[in-house]
Amino acid sequence: MAVLLSVYLPDTLWVSGAFVKRGEDTVLGYFYVKPGEKVVYKVIKPVNQIMLILPETLVIYYPDHKKAFKIRHHYVFTDGLFSFNAENLLRLGFVLEGEDTTGDTVIKTYKHPDMGVKAVIKSVGGSVREYIGYGVRGEEVLRVRYGEFKEVYRGFRFPDRVEITAANSTESYDYYGVSVVGEGGVPDYVVNFKIPEDVEVVYKGWE
């Protein structure tokens, strides 16, 4: 998410809002994004959890259990939901294979010349509405559908819903009250997050 946002937003601002994730379980909480630096999720249901996505570390903290995980990760600094765009595909080595325009609907097909996989991005009125990923045998492996986009900051638009279908399971994210705020509008535990000293920290992937 941060990779996409950093293209549009000054790095002094945060994007924040509430979310509901629906899938196997329903997860409620808030999210805060500092472009290029961190993504923070504060989950309030079903468990009290704070998740920080940092450039090389995923921190998951459970205040009620006095336990935290520091998981080393190598993926691009994004939570994945907003990384399905043309810029990221081109950066990953995909090339534009075809483009079809009907009215205000544009369907672009991208292909990776070495890996043999394809991606299709469908945009309506300039906003991405659907992303479909195909495997090497032409089978559909991923489908991401975006809801209505609303402008939250000087031309920067944010979807109210993202639905992901992969491996026969579907989960969706609904976003509410999304706004762009300065540091003063973000809780202190998000800006200056630190795991308390009395918390047990489990390290994964640092061996």
């Binding site: 998740m51 995980f69 992937g205």
Partner: peptide, 25 residues
């Protein structure tokens, strides 16, 4: 080591995160 997607661990219990991360990797 492959990284478990963060979204798969969102809202999960500490026990789930511990087991899921190890098994995924």
């Amino acid at each position: 080591e492959p990284d478990p997607p963060a979204s798969n661990l969102l809202g999960k219990s500490p026990e789930y995160v511990a087991v899921y991360t190890d098994c995924y990797k």
